[in-house]
Design a binder for these strands. Structure first.
Length: 599
RNA sequence: GGACCGGUAGCUCAGCUGGAUAGAGCAUCUGCCUUCUAAGCAGACGGUCAUAGGUUCGAAUCCUAUCCGGUUCACCA
């Protein structure tokens, strides 16, 4: 249990014992970190008690302060300033905490909750390569999965691939018409980009056909519906659904090219999946459920045979679930897939990492399943995130304004290389090591940039301004980590040494401000991790780790480690930096960001 | 029009389960490398927390209204 929780708990106990007649709600006990301008480490706010107890703050504060001093071995002193009870925690407590945890590589990892949690993320279309917006989804999904795993859940990472539909047929038609049998192998183009190029070619051809038809006197609206290439794509989709062998075979081939390309990108991003779902397998699911719902009168059928759900009681509209011709719509297959996931993996929670433009859709999905009283309903959580936009507005693949994900990764690695060379920090590395280092720095910066903002906020990325490697960045944290490793190398100490090597440590002198700040921050880490899980917000880990690195840099500047004043200080500081580096690796590793030992 | 989300320093963002004088980074300016990595540190400058009411001992935080921006409300996926 963290110090804050311990203080709260003893404070509640104190109130109960000192004022047995009064009932004070647990929520009234708030403990904050003491503001730097006052003496103390943590502060108990006394105002909430005044009215209930009808006493002055000084009287209550003194009583609680004395109780805490007497009943704990870590509260050594207190002072009351204008209704705030400032508590001083003993240096010995902090030193003991450090000694008990500094080699614990599981520090921050919580014990098992026994819960099965699925996180669905990435979920691409197979007609074009991934772009910058997908990166936010992918990094967020991966980070969230790890956070949930670290906080004790059994996590299944899943990817629902949108491998069917008119958009794929568009790429297929264009390939038939324009490719002359070209393949990714024959052209040397990465598979997803190769197929994406034909999607663009389709749109170019479509535009041209519409123009020609309009020039010959057709209405624009009519032309947009009747352009031959579009009709061909629609015909192809019908054939695909009918199981036409030639079409299905082409579809398999082209999807295969795309998957090969995605695999390369996913690998480079450092993300993976435990379970793949394909829409071509799942798009017919849900129909049975619709029938069941109809039988149970949860849904209603209109005269034309279409099936609907009425959500007007929930403040929403009526929503269609099945067309009059009996075919399923988007939400129908999602109902089916949600149930399938639940049954496949015995899920307690099912998280969908999907952009916020689908908030309404996800709300409807959950409501429908709740109305059906399906056990999977309550576990559904939409991890909604804001779009990544360009200064000119949204990215649109058809208008060619997308920032490609692969290009972006190349770009970041190139920046890392350039800045490392400019700073003259390439000495003592082999070519191989440098290459790995640039990847670590470049991809780390990219991931951090996308993860450091609250997911629900939309973000604007200006491709003209490269992602900074100074300030609130992964690079800052990586640099602090490399500095620690450098000290440990010189001292010939392992990153995680034998705990026994400091067993004769004994705190005799006071902790300095810089030392204490770091230890206090380290103590808070498990709470931060838990908050990130509870709030579904990995950005909390970015903020925390950045602050930890800031504290380390100040500490580094203020104190010498290898030439500390005496042996006691040296041991103390070594333990501090060992644990700091350990927590940094743990936190950033959870987000999928690795920290170099040297940079 | 209804629903949902956002509006905090010139820019990008923390803080939002109410607590002390609203914090970081970038940008601008001033210092600091014969001592463990200056991708760093110390400091300066910069705020009607969109606006107006309300609740409270106390409001950036909660409530109401308004303004601005975004998303969404398809027999598309």
């Amino acid at each position: 249990m963290s110090v804050v929780e311990q203080i709260k708990s003893v404070a509640r106990e104190a109130l109960g014992s000192l004022y047995p007649d009064a009932t004070i709600p647990a929520s009234a006990v708030t403990v904050n970190q003491t503001k730097p301008e006052f003496e103390g480490d943590y502060t108990l706010v006394l105002f909430p008690f005044l009215k209930i107890l009808r006493q002055k703050p000084d009287a209550i504060g003194t009583a609680i302060g004395d109780y805490l001093k007497e009943h704990t071995d870590y509260v050594t002193n207190y002072s009351i300033v204008a209704g705030f009870l400032n508590l001083t925690i003993s240096d010995k407590f902090w030193a003991d905490f450090l000694q008990n945890n500094f080699v614990n590589t599981d520090y921050g990892t919580q014990s098992s909750t026994g819960k099965n949690v699925m996180v669905e993320y990435s979920s691409p279309n197979t007609n074009k390569p991934l772009h910058f917006g997908h990166l936010r989804n992918i990094f967020l999904g991966y980070a969230m999965s790890s956070v949930l795993e670290v906080t004790g859940n059994n996590v299944i990472k899943s990817n629902l691939i949108n491998d069917r539909g008119i958009h794929i047929c568009k790429s297929m038609i264009a390939w038939q018409k324009f490719a002359n049998g070209a393949t990714p192998e024959s052209t040397g183009i990465k598979g997803d980009h190769f197929v994406g190029d034909y999607y663009v070619k389709f749109n170019d051809a479509f535009k041209q056909e519409v123009e020609d038809m309009v020039a010959k006197g057709a209405e624009k609206e009519v032309a947009e519906k009747e352009a031959p290439i579009l009709l061909a794509a629609q015909e192809m989709l019908r054939k695909w659904e009918a199981g036409d062998e030639e079409i299905v075979s082409l579809w398999e081939t082209m999807n295969g090219w795309v998957y090969d390309g995605f695999d390369v990108s996913y690998k480079r991003m450092g993300v993976d999946f435990n379970k793949m779902y394909y829409e071509s397998d799942t798009y017919l699911l849900g129909k049975e459920v619709v029938q069941e719902g109809l039988d149970k009168n949860v849904f209603l059928q209109k005269e034309d045979g279409s099936i609907w759900i009425d959500l007007q009681d929930e403040g929403l509209d009526q929503k269609i679930l099945q067309r009059k011709d009996g075919t399923s719509v988007y939400i129908t297959q999602d109902i089916g897939t949600a149930i399938k996931k639940y049954e496949d993996c015995d899920l307690d929670t099912s998280i969908y990492v999907i952009g916020d433009e689908q908030n309404y859709h996800m709300q409807v999905l959950k409501l429908i399943l709740q109305k059906l009283k399906h056990p999977c309903a309550d576990g559904i959580y939409h991890l909604s995130y804001g779009m990544v936009e360009l200064p000119t507005g949204k990215m649109k693949s058809r208008e060619g304004t997308v920032v490609d994900a692969d290009d972006m990764m190349d770009e970041m690695i190139a920046i890392a290389k350039q800045q490392t060379e400019e700073a003259g920090k390439t000495d003592g590395f082999t070519e191989e090591e440098l290459k790995a280092l640039y990847e670590t720095i470049g991809l780390g910066a990219l991931k951090f940039y996308l993860l450091r903002v609250d997911p629900k906020k939309k973000m604007i990325f200006d491709p003209k301004e490269s992602i900074d490697l100074h300030g609130f960045t992964a690079t800052f944290i990586q640099y602090a980590h490399a500095r620690i490793c450098s000290i440990l190398r010189k001292e010939k100490i392992a990153q995680i040494p034998d705990a026994a090597s400091f067993s004769n440590f004994n705190l005799a002198t006071e902790l300095t401000e810089a030392e204490k700040k770091l230890i206090v921050s380290l103590e808070q880490y498990p709470d931060v991790m838990q908050n990130a899980a509870d709030d579904y917000n990995p950005s909390l880990l970015c903020n925390y780790t950045f602050q930890l690195a800031q504290h380390f840099n100040s500490f580094y500047d203020a104190h010498s480690i290898s030439k500390a004043e005496n042996d006691e200080k040296k041991q103390l500081r070594l333990m501090i930096i060992i644990m700091t580096a350990q927590v940094m690796r743990h936190a950033m590793g959870t987000l999928g960001i690795s920290l170099p030992n040297k940079m």
